[in-house]
Design a protein around this nucleic acid. Structure first.
Length: 571
RNA sequence: GGGCUCGUGGUGCAGCCUGGUUAGCACACUGGACUGUCAAUCCAGAGGUCGCGGGUUCAAAUCCCGUCGAGCCCGCCA
């Protein structure tokens, strides 16, 4: 047996050592009488050293079984031992119960990954990939690789660029997704494509977002929305069944974007708990409370929800809720404690008449002991704030049930959205997303697009694509693109579409977030073998790092000094 | 680009609000004892520029300013 020395219990004579490998722990016993030489070596073991032992696997003596260990009924009586590599004292203990600083864990990631918990995560990701490959293969999908060095796309996120040595001044872009290539594969007659592929976006990382991430990318020809969803639903049901031993019903619920926004204030609602939003415009239609009246007269909304048992919150916690609201850009929060059917306590009780408060309580379903939360603002800001409050309170009040996996589809999203920055309409998904109807007026047009949502996280999304030139031209018009611009930006795709394009659609599913949820982790870093810190640096390798002048010259690149330049990479 | 939180022996934390002995605890580490432990136990020991720089003060881990690093969030991102 080979492995690492996890722990020693040295009785001077008799010595126990827990040997760890990828599969787990097993207890080695060194008897001074049976193998005095081995026992002498074991006496000097340093933790995390690599050893090889021979001996006999025995049932443990009566009364010494360890029920907390899968191998707890046996032990290895060691005959010979060999130290293959002596280890320095590790910078942090290689154990699950220790919460070491994350920077330290990333710097010594190979030690961190030795922890059983992390080993389990790697195996979990492997299981997910295997189930996907098995599922897709069973449905006659063919895995095709697409290039990593590709062309920068005008829409969407910031690209990672790679200088082209043979083309000084020109750059490849690392793919944000294989979107256009998979559509070209459909034109190429490869009617069921999939790929487990890395995608890269140069945008600020978050707990549930990183520079590089892995997607199940797929595309099908001659299909509609149902066909695509019917491929994904049983796959995700299989994954949850395999990893969580929970049966999730298919098909998944479908909610329109409009319905989600109205009821949850977000397009990725957590359906494991209630606290649905209610429109309180009617309850406060004739209110004398100026903040509310102003919101209504300016075309805004008054929306709110009831937090069950929320009356128990302290004043400090209520102030925290106001903070959550303001962080998300809304003007303010009005809370009301429902004490009983007649009495409602609130900082604004002077301004709100009892009938209005009671109407609001009725509309949200708030009863005695509940907390009523109301935001009056522009619809988008009110929704963002209420979504944040809903998530915050669900966690605070313990309303999030464990072990529930509530999938749902978000369907019929808007086709366009107004970009304040650019001062024009832009695609919500991408410009090849098929409209749901002939209506292409940017304010009301909806898309044949869909997102899969699980427990408040967006797992992925896709759409049926446009395949007729007339519709495509009209979409470009709304986006304010001239024929010259479309030729410049999308010429290769549009040219391909002239040579016989099948109707097609697909989806891209993020595997990291799924792994994170399946593993019960709070960050993507905890389900990634070698992640980067939030700064984008990799403490393990020291990337990013400056390169020799000569290398830059070769690429025809001059580095311009910037105020915020960092001296070195992560390490 | 912005907001919040954190930074103290190898590790995890306390001390900071209210400045004043030798910076405390646990784990790890080193030496010793111990023949059925399993987070072994017992005894002893070593180990600290309190992230860095500046300021206030008779005196700074503690107060102030700046800076670096880490995390979370907003903006951004499907």
């Amino acid at each position: 047996m080979c492995g690492w020395v996890a722990r020693q219990r040295d009785h001077g004579g008799l010595t126990f050592v827990d040997l760890r490998d990828r599969e787990g722990l097993v207890q080695l016993v060194f008897h001074p009488e049976e193998a005095p030489e081995a026992q002498e070596v074991a006496h000097q073991f340093k933790t995390e050293s690599v050893i090889r032992v021979t001996g006999e696997v025995r049932r443990r003596p009566e009364g010494t079984v360890n029920p907390g260990l899968p191998t707890g009924e046996v032990e290895v009586a060691v005959r010979t031992v060999e130290v293959l590599a002596v280890a320095d004292t590790p910078p942090f203990p290689v154990e699950d119960r220790i919460e070491a600083d994350e920077l330290l864990r990333l710097t010594y990631r190979y030690l961190d990954l030795r922890r059983p918990e992390m080993t389990r995560v790697l195996q979990l990701r492997h299981s997910i990939s295997r189930i996907i490959r098995d599922h897709m293969e069973g449905l006659a999908f063919v895995e095709v690789e697409t290039p990593f060095l590709t062309r920068s796309t005008p829409e969407g996120a910031r690209d990672f660029l790679v200088p082209a040595r043979l083309w000084p001044g020109s750059f490849y872009a690392l793919p944000q997704s294989p979107q256009q290539l998979k559509q070209l594969l459909m034109v190429a007659g490869q009617d069921r494509y999939y790929q487990i592929v890395r995608c890269l976006r140069d945008e600020a990382p978050r707990a549930d977002r990183s520079f590089e991430f892995t997607q199940l990318d797929m595309e099908m020809s001659f299909v509609n929305e149902d066909d695509v969803l019917r491929v994904i639903e049983p796959l995700y049901a299989r994954i949850v069944a395999h990893i969580k031993s929970v049966v999730v019903p298919v098909p998944f619920r479908r909610l329109t974007y409009a319905e989600m926004m109205a009821r949850y204030g977000t397009d990725r609602p957590d359906l494991r708990y209630g606290m649905e939003l209610a429109d309180l415009g009617e309850a406060f239609a004739g209110t004398g409370f100026r903040a509310f009246a102003a919101a209504l007269s300016q075309g805004g909304v008054i929306k709110g929800f009831a937090a069950p048992g929320g009356s128990q919150l302290s004043r400090r916690e209520l102030d925290e809720l106001v903070q959550v609201t303001k962080e998300r850009g809304a003007a303010g929060l009005v809370w009301m404690v429902v004490e009983d059917k007649e009495t409602i306590r609130s900082p604004v009780e002077k301004h709100v008449i009892p009938e209005e408060a009671r109407a609001a309580a009725a509309a949200t379903g708030a009863g005695p002991g509940d907390l009523l939360l109301i935001v009056a603002d522009r619809a988008d800001r009110a929704n963002v704030a209420l979504d944040g409050l809903r998530r915050h309170l669900a966690a605070r009040l313990g309303l999030v049930p464990d072990g529930e996996w509530r999938f749902c589809w978000m369907v019929e999203p808007p086709l366009f959205e107004w970009s304040e920055d650019e001062g024009k309409w832009v695609s919500v998904h991408h410009p090849f997303t098929s409209p749901a109807s002939d209506d292409l007026s940017p304010e009301t047009a909806t898309a044949r697009a869909y997102d899969l949502v699980l427990n408040g996280f967006e797992l992925g999304g896709g759409s049926i694509r446009i395949h007729d030139p007339w519709t495509q031209r009209r979409v470009f018009e709304v986006l304010g693109l001239t024929p010259e611009e479309t030729e410049e930006k999308f010429g290769h795709l549009l040219r391909a579409f002239r040579y016989g394009v099948p109707p097609h659609g697909g989806i891209a599913m993020g595997l990291d977030r799924l792994a994170m949820l399946m593993a019960g982790k709070e960050t993507l870093r905890d389900v990634t073998a070698f992640p980067k810190a939030q700064s984008g640096a990799d403490p393990l390798t020291g990337a990013p790092a400056p390169v020799p002048e000569e290398q830059l010259r070769d690429l025809g690149i001059t580095v311009i000094a910037r105020k915020d330049a960092k001296k070195d990479g992560g390490a």
